[in-house]
Amino acid sequence: MELNLTQALYDLAMSTGFVTITWQQIVMLFISFTLLYLAIVKGFEPLLLLPIAFGMLLANLPDTGIMAPQGTAIDPITGKEKIVPGGLLWYLYQGVKMGIYPPLIFLGIGAMTDFGPLIANPKTLLLGAAAQLGIFTTFIGALFLGFNPQEAASIGIIGGADGPTAIFLTSKLAPHLLGAIAVAAYSYMALVPIIQPPIMRALTTKKARMTVMEQLRPVSQTEKIIFPIVVTVIVTLLLPDAAPLIGMLMLGNLFRESGVVGRLNDTAQNALINIVTIFLGTTVGATASAENFLNFQTISIILLGLAAFAMGTAGGVLLGNLMYVLSGGKVNPLIGSAGVSAVPMAARVSQVVGQKDNPRNFLLMHAMGPNVAGVIGSAVAAGVLLSLFGTH
């Protein structure tokens, strides 16, 4: 009896995760702890960084099977094949794999977004387009480093600073890179206040940064209602592959601006986007298992993502400089940095950097134009890359 008890205790001890955990999984746990620290203590993009970090933690605890796919096995009693259920997060992950969650996130973003500043100053659409420079330059750089076109496109989209778009495109083109790309995209979005200001100051003069822009004209409700309809029609006719993202973004915005579906608008920008964010963040984080994440390829993606983000910021600022010159000094080039679609953080950074040189400068609403244009621009860029390199 004593021998059996000892054996049972030994078997129990050997079945615990403490015995089977690998050093790679331990490293990944510490990475997840770091991301949790940044989300909770530093407040960096917590709504998505926190579930991503916790999903990463769950996926790297051994023997949980929480991301195990559904499979089949032979029943030892009947000898017949039976279905073995998958893990909880594997089932929730199907919403990412099938491209469902990112468009639903865009629905909520559309319901929260005021396109008024962009409608009032349509020229800022060009700044949003210029900030997509990082996507395409990094795409070329990734090709030179040996990534295939699908992988390079997924890495390049990090430069759009739009997490849902990056996840949507990567799930279609290179799902094996999803964990690394999602972590890079959301980490750099969270670090906007640190990464962007040095680039903005290096590419502008103090005189240009001090520029005070004229107040934006009022935008009518009619204009705000027509805008999402027109954008949907034009962009979808040009790029059918962009329809899921652009369509949901503009539907959410139409909920907001129409004034007749208050309940739908409230659900889209609160309950729905919050639920989908939990599912999206946790399952994307769970794809960052040790075997998928700890390799040279991931390091390359992190570095290329930083380059993409920096180039996107630079592209917007450089076009801002050109507009400053062509307008006779009426456009502050700092608003170009907001062309990356980290809404509204990038617009706030434009405001903060501008006020350091001129405390009377209020650039926030002007920067919101290129900022929301960047959301459209990144979705359009994703549509271009998907039409070029996706399977049809």
Results as ranks from 00 to 15, higher is better:
Leu3Cys: 11
Leu3Gly: 07
Gly17Trp: 02
Val19Phe: 13
Val27Pro: 10
Leu29Trp: 03
Ser32Leu: 08
Phe33Leu: 15
Leu38Glu: 10
Val41Thr: 14
Leu48Gln: 03
Ile52Thr: 07
Phe54Tyr: 03
Pro62Trp: 08
Pro62Gly: 05
Ala73Met: 13
Ile74Glu: 02
Ile77Gln: 06
Lys80His: 14
Ile83Leu: 12
Ile83Glu: 14
Gly86Cys: 05
Leu88Glu: 09
Trp90Thr: 06
Gly99Met: 03
Ile109Gly: 05
Ile109Ala: 13
Ala111His: 03
Met112Asn: 15
Thr124Met: 13
Ala130Leu: 06
Gln132Trp: 06
Gly134Val: 03
Phe136Trp: 12
Thr138Trp: 08
Ile140Asn: 09
Leu145Glu: 06
Gln150Asn: 14
Gln150Trp: 00
Ile167Trp: 00
Leu177Gly: 05
Tyr186Val: 13
Leu191Phe: 07
Thr204Gly: 05
Met210Arg: 14
Met210Gly: 15
Met213Lys: 04
Thr222Met: 11
Thr222Phe: 10
Pro228Val: 10
Ile229Ala: 03
Val230Trp: 13
Val231Met: 14
Thr232Ile: 09
Thr232Asn: 08
Leu239Asp: 06
Ala243Glu: 01
Leu254Lys: 08
Leu254Met: 05
Phe255Asp: 01
Gly259Asn: 07
Val261His: 12
Gly262Ile: 11
Ala268Arg: 10
Asn270Gly: 08
Leu272Gln: 02
Thr277Pro: 12
Thr277Cys: 14
Ala290His: 01
Glu291Tyr: 10
Phe296Lys: 11
Gln297His: 11
Ser300Leu: 11
Ser300Arg: 07
Ile302Leu: 11
Gly316Asp: 05
Gly320Leu: 00
Gly320Ile: 01
Leu322Gly: 10
Leu326Cys: 00
Ser327Ala: 11
Asn332Cys: 14
Ser337Asp: 02
Ser337Leu: 06
Ala338Val: 05
Ala338Gln: 00
Val340Gly: 01
Ala342Asp: 15
Met345Ser: 07
Arg348Lys: 15
Gln351Tyr: 00
Lys356Ser: 13
Lys356Gly: 14
Gly369Pro: 12
Ile376Trp: 07
Ser378Pro: 01
Ala381Val: 04
Gly383Asp: 04
Leu388Tyr: 01
